[in-house]
Amino acid sequence: MAQDNPSPDAAEIGEIEDFIEAEELDALRAERDELRDRFMRALADAENSRKRAERDRREAEQYGSTRLARDLLPVFDNLKRALDAATDETRTQAAALIEGVDLTLRELTNVMTKHGVTPISPVAGDTFDPQLHQAMFEAPVPGTKAGQIIQVMTEGFMLHDRLLRPAQVGVSSTPAN
């Protein structure tokens, strides 16, 4: 009697097993490569997160006091105005009061400097710098060049290397002929 489907012989079975093993081996290699890629990406993400956290920590340490420093600037301005408003007569009549205001202003300045807040103190004749100054007005003033500071209204301040508040100044425009 003849068979329609002859049974595979041992050689054919070996080839089939080798093919299945090769397929499994290829699948395992592909899975390994995918897992290695995912692992390397996870390592890179972890390193980036560490660097970002370190940078954020440094910035928070250095610039975390920005709001407090900005809130203290009007106190500085008012103490300075009080001293500027004192006449010679007031200084002799209320010497202790003036000295107290002066000491308070100096202490505030020392504390601000200790925390990285430094003044920007332009003077008349300096060149206007839009990175550090805010022009409050322009006026043609004889004997000046366009862009020169002619009046300082308030000092500016830096917090480390960042502008906290620009100095408010008046700037000379081109003198009229």
Rank of each mutant, 00 (worst) to 15 (best):
E15A: 07
I16N: 14
I16L: 14
D18W: 08
D18K: 13
I20Y: 12
A22I: 02
E23S: 02
E23L: 02
E23W: 02
A27S: 15
L28T: 06
E31K: 14
R32S: 14
R36S: 06
D37N: 12
D37Y: 15
R38S: 13
R38E: 15
A42V: 09
A42W: 05
L43W: 10
S49G: 15
K51P: 00
K51Q: 12
A53K: 07
D56M: 03
R57G: 01
E61D: 06
E61I: 10
G64I: 10
G64F: 10
S65F: 08
T66A: 03
T66L: 03
T66D: 03
L68W: 11
L72S: 03
V75Y: 11
L79K: 05
L79N: 12
A82Q: 11
L83F: 06
A85E: 14
D88R: 04
E89R: 05
E89F: 14
E89W: 01
Q93F: 15
A94I: 07
A95D: 12
A95C: 04
A95Y: 09
E99S: 13
E99G: 14
G100F: 06
D102V: 07
L108V: 06
L108Y: 15
T109Y: 05
V111K: 07
V111N: 06
T113E: 15
K114R: 12
H115A: 09
H115Q: 04
S121C: 05
P122H: 02
P122Q: 00
V123Q: 08
V123I: 11
G125Q: 03
G125S: 01
F128L: 02
P130M: 06
Q131F: 07
Q131L: 10
L132M: 04
H133L: 03
A135K: 10
A135Q: 04
F137N: 00
E138R: 00
G143Q: 01
T144G: 03
T144V: 02
K145G: 00
A146Q: 10
A146K: 09
G147D: 11
Q148A: 06
Q148D: 10
I149C: 01
I150Q: 00
M153L: 12
T154H: 11
T154W: 04
G156R: 09
G156Q: 08
F157G: 04
F157R: 00
M158A: 09
D161G: 07
D161V: 02
R162T: 06
L163Q: 10
L163I: 03
L163R: 13
